[in-house]
Design a protein around this nucleic acid. Structure first.
Lengths: 276, 276
DNA sequence: GCAAAAGTGTTTAATTTACACCCATGC
DNA sequence: GCATGGGTGTAAATTAAACACTTTTGC
């Protein structure tokens, strides 16, 4: 076979394959293999009184009726080839909107990241359900706006230390975990691990402070996430390096405190590339 | 209400709730909401000739017939309340077994970790399909045993640099990515990122060397994963610290090399807690 | 003035990085 | 003997940790 002949052959083959596949899709009908239901569940974090909290909503329906659970819901899908439904990230955003009552613009400013998918058989007693878990970071300024489906009594912020207490408090923590619906305690654990790992690799710390913030406010967030105090002086030094890197910049004004007023800074969304 | 009365009330309520839920489940029939198909796809890594490779299998059916793809398949699920089907991790192990031809005991020794779930609408032209991605680490000693469904011609190891080449080689890399079925190039990217992040947090490096190994063999693995050379002296020093920590221990014998024979070591699966 | 937190500086240890050099072995 | 890679040592640079001290405000 000559080179040109081969080339022609290849092109012909490829076109033929394409037609072949188009015909296949035309005739294709989804089989009858059983499928799982798929939900998106959100671990919504915020910092209240310098402590990390998770958003829980009370279940109004079976199963686990009356128990506290993570906000979430079923992913909208379809086999329609021109519209297969919503993306997973979009589903997470939609659930955040629906379950928290946040406005569209407010919820669009919320950081969302997929953790992983939970699928242990039996985790939902009704049927086989997979849960794609996300974690969300909500600025404390948005917290007062949150209502579970418009009903405050059906939403609460749980102090995370009540779930992870060890030693003497371990028993209470274990009980609190048991009060959660499904395997949601495990999902919270995984989300927390992921967020902690992300904290010193990415810029997620800025997602939990207001638009402008003081160094001590940012430190409080890091302390809440890590669950241990950080040296103020050393934290400041690491922080100031971020200014040189163009990650943050000084903002106008001062923040009044219990003592000396503190300088405020702003997170620069697109970090300038260093020119060195 | 007295304390004891309240306690009794609580217990009564809880029991009542339980009966209520049991009745609910008894009557419950899964609704008609559309569900997605769910697959498990594997990014199987190994090191060949000091280069990181991924396992690809040739698709024998539409869609993307004849193209290269990640090994994987549909998760077996059911709504039967006494048997909802296999766990996601179990599905990943099963697919590894089925698609590579590795023996049960061999594949049980393969490290598997979930990456995340891909669900962009349209990623499968047939219907809505979510893919739960895993990455697997296969020791080079097992590589010769791998056959895609018993057929060597339907499996190949792709050098990862052919997918990630930049600059002059960028065009070829882009073409190679386009040759992959579905969004599998994206899945490989995500798996690679995750594995690299895991490399200096966990002990996954040991999953890609033989049972006993020399320092230079382990270094070659790290270099392959990171894609850059490491200083032999410095790597050795970091490594020797692991001996003090009880992570690894010297093994019997020497490994012949091109020059001076090298000492071999063994990974200690359960690291002894340091007593300090 | 005094408490309280902002902000600065210093000292020490630990870790990383780069690189020089000796040593044992196969050929 | 000599090239090769194993194995060791060292010096400089950077980063992390601990903590003392000075400054500026509210009360």
């Amino acid at each position: 076979m000559t080179k040109t002949a081969k080339r022609k052959g290849d092109a012909g083959e490829r076109a033929e394959e394409h037609d072949d596949e188009a015909r296949f899709l035309e005739r294709y009908r989804p089989g009858v293999y059983p499928r799982p239901s798929v939900t998106v569940d959100l671990v919504v974090f915020t910092v209240i009184d310098k402590l990390l909290h998770v958003l829980l909503v009370r279940r109004s329906e079976h199963p686990f009726k009356g128990r506290w659970a993570l906000p979430g819901g079923f992913v909208r899908v379809s086999d329609d080839r021109t519209d297969q439904g919503e993306d997973l990230d979009a589903a997470a955003h939609r659930e955040l909107l629906e379950e928290t009552g946040l406005s569209h613009t407010a919820s669009a400013n919320v950081f969302l990241e997929q953790v992983r998918t939970f699928g242990k058989p039996g985790r939902d007693p009704r049927m086989r359900v997979l849960s794609v878990a996300y974690y969300a970071l909500v600025r404390p300024t948005l917290v007062p706006l949150i209502r579970a489906g418009g009903d405050v009594s059906h939403a609460k912020w749980l102090d995370l230390s009540e779930l992870t207490g060890r030693g003497a408090e371990g028993a209470r923590a274990k009980a609190a975990r048991g009060e959660l619906a499904f395997d949601h305690a495990d999902i919270i654990d995984a989300a927390l691990d992921r967020m902690r790992a992300d904290l010193d690799r990415t810029a997620i710390g800025f997602e939990l402070v207001a638009d402008t913030f003081t160094i001590q406010e940012l430190r409080a967030v890091h302390e809440a996430i890590r669950g241990e105090p950080l040296d103020p002086g050393n934290f400041r030094k690491r922080f100031l390096r971020l200014i040189d890197d163009g990650i943050i910049e000084p903002a106008r004004g001062k923040r009044p405190t219990a003592s000396k007023p503190a300088s405020v800074y702003r997170f620069v969304r697109e970090a300038k590339r260093s020119t060195t």
